[in-house]
Design a binder for these strands. Structure first.
Lengths: 342, 342
DNA sequence: TAACTTTATGACAGCGCTGGTCATTTTGTA
DNA sequence: TACAAAATGACCAGCGCTGTCATAAAGTTA
């Protein structure tokens, strides 16, 4: 019923020791043998027992994902990606929702790692942007991978997966520019999230490239929430010279903006184009559906986990700076249109 | 650094087996010995190794949560509740997102349980409403707890946590009735989800009690989505004699209804009252915020986990039918008001 | 108080795997 | 063909705990 290392060994016609060698990428195993073993593992649906491995080995076979993100869709997507990667590599995933702002958070993370003997940690915002967490983890010698907003791999930070918000925002803005818009406003997300800053920078860069000066009144601070979108848009639409397009820093803000516009009987997209960011379910639950940037969160998470395994695994110290960069893709739906000729 | 059962045994002056007995509440241990051991455990900050226990024991110290629910907020809330309960009882939680409609789903669940040696499973809709899953689990003798919609504990189903949608819907409808509404429409969720049926039944019961016949045209089939709400409300508001209030089967539908109403320049709540169900973040991300029923998902999840532990743990076979029932509570916000006098 | 039952405790094997040490076989190379 | 190097296996201990069974302590009865 339950398939163990012995079953695999028997099936592949090798000793359990060799199966173990294959599983752990140990040197001195012929490729042919590796293949045989892998095939046997597949045929038997073998999954090594994490319990036994954790117990027997000095290494650990579980990774942790700590999060504190109000966006449930994001978290679920991340989990799914991590889970997939873990399954493939025979790791366990420990999820740990917590409060990033709690005073004892650093100690809490350390306790978690030590008590659960974690091989490593995957960090998303806000944790990935908290230097004290990174320091604490480094000091106790625990591997971790951070998913952060950024465009250029930095050689000293090899443990990052980058999401290129800058370039994505640049592209979105270009989409708007190509539709003839020049009066484009930007609704910011939370200051603390670097993603908001990156997106704003991409936005500005696109404008600048076309020789357009960003109107300071068109850049509205805010936070990643529906309410913020309502407020920001209301403010913008009260301006004597309104923008013809609004770039909202995420879909929730965009939904809020959409809402505000409709309240004022402004037709979307005929009189005003609105774009979001993230391709969250929100962006489909508005009318019209939002043009947005698709962030492949599940894939990003997988990539982060793989990176972590690579660090953790003894064999694979390939020293090459593999720092994946993901660029969210423009997804044109019905909330954007050619600028209205006045 | 790491304290094991041997350290505790040495400290308490007993054998490791006795320590094990104390940990597992096994009978035949003198109270004096129990105290000694407990004290030693405390002094040493002893934490048993889940890995070793899982490996050595026929019982397991992990439970699983399988889900396939498009509502990420629901899933996250559930996870949090389960996690809390697990932490308190020294269990691990294994999360397993999957596709309920996949043809091999039963086998997949069985594989999961057998391979990960789970002590039990927590099932939420749709899994909790799939008889084939329950049968398969029973046949391989695995404990599980189902969270289902229902109001009356049934003596033959001891492994259920009930969410009393009927009563909650009854109360919501009463709220509307007390505001003077009599022309109330109902937007259904998916047929397959029993929650939709239960809520509709509660709705009808409340009307009947007031001597009101539910207008068949006011009961609109649909699904748990924004789009469905838009469609249903649009249809209702085109009727010659419109309803003065709409009971949407969940917040998403309600948000859709709200949206549709606003498109038609109908003032909420002055001209039309709308209620949702669930108290999801959606209900706060509309304007006006929705009157809804609050479902304490985290608490429900905890309760389900506790029930599972009770079943699993050898000592506690209290045979009493402890079948928790949760009644979502009415949460009045700004989307409902006294019926307009015509 | 002996004989016996019940209760409390310990000795020991083993869960599935890793890590080490050697011995042995297979392969590649001079 | 001889020899070094690479590939594999056999075997053992042990990770921290539980299950089984044997044994010791305590309680009961006549």
């Amino acid at each position: 019923m339950k398939v163990t290392i012995h079953d695999v060994a028997a099936r592949a016609g090798v000793s359990i020791k060799t199966v173990s060698r294959v599983m752990n990428n140990e040197p001195s195993v012929k490729q042919a043998t590796i293949d045989k073993v892998n095939q046997a593992m597949q045929e038997l649906h073998y999954q090594p027992s994490a319990a036994a491995r954790n117990l027997a080995s000095t290494k650990s076979y579980s990774i942790g994902y700590i999060y504190d993100n109000p966006n449930a869709y994001y978290v679920i997507d991340m989990q799914r990606g991590l889970l997939d990667a873990c399954r493939r590599h025979g790791y366990e995933l420990l999820i740990h929702p917590t409060n990033a702002k709690s005073p004892g958070i650093v100690q809490e993370v350390i306790d978690l790692v030590q008590h659960s003997r974690l091989a490593g940690l995957v960090l998303t915002p806000p944790f990935s942007e908290m230097p004290e967490i990174a320091e604490a983890l480094s000091s106790i010698n625990v591997d971790f991978v951070r998913i952060i907003s950024g465009s250029t791999p930095s050689p000293k930070q090899t443990n990052c997966v980058l999401v290129d918000d800058f370039t994505a925002a640049f592209k979105i803005t270009n989409h708007l520019l190509e539709l003839g818009h020049s009066q484009i406003a930007f609704l910011c997300g939370d200051d603390e999230h670097s993603s908001s800053g990156e997106r704003l920078a991409g936005f500005k860069a696109a404008l600048t490239k076309r020789g357009i000066n960003a109107n300071p009144k068109f850049i509205v601070p805010g936070s990643y929430s529906f309410e913020s979108g309502v407020k920001g848009a209301t403010q913008l639409l009260a301006l004597p010279n309104k923008p013809t397009a609004i770039f909202a820093c995420n879909d929730e803000i965009a939904a809020g903006a959409l809402f505000s516009a409709r309240l004022q009987h402004i037709e979307i997209p005929q009189q005003l184009s609105i774009v979001g960011f993230e391709n969250s379910p929100f962006s489909r639950q508005t009318w019209p559906p939002l043009t947005t940037a698709h962030q492949p969160n599940s894939t990003i998470a997988q990539s982060a986990a793989e990176l972590l395994f690579k660090h953790t695994r003894p064999g694979n110290h390939s020293q090459t700076e593999d720092q994946p960069v993901f660029i969210p893709e423009l997804l044109v739906r019905e909330s954007t249109a050619v600028v209205a000729s006045e």
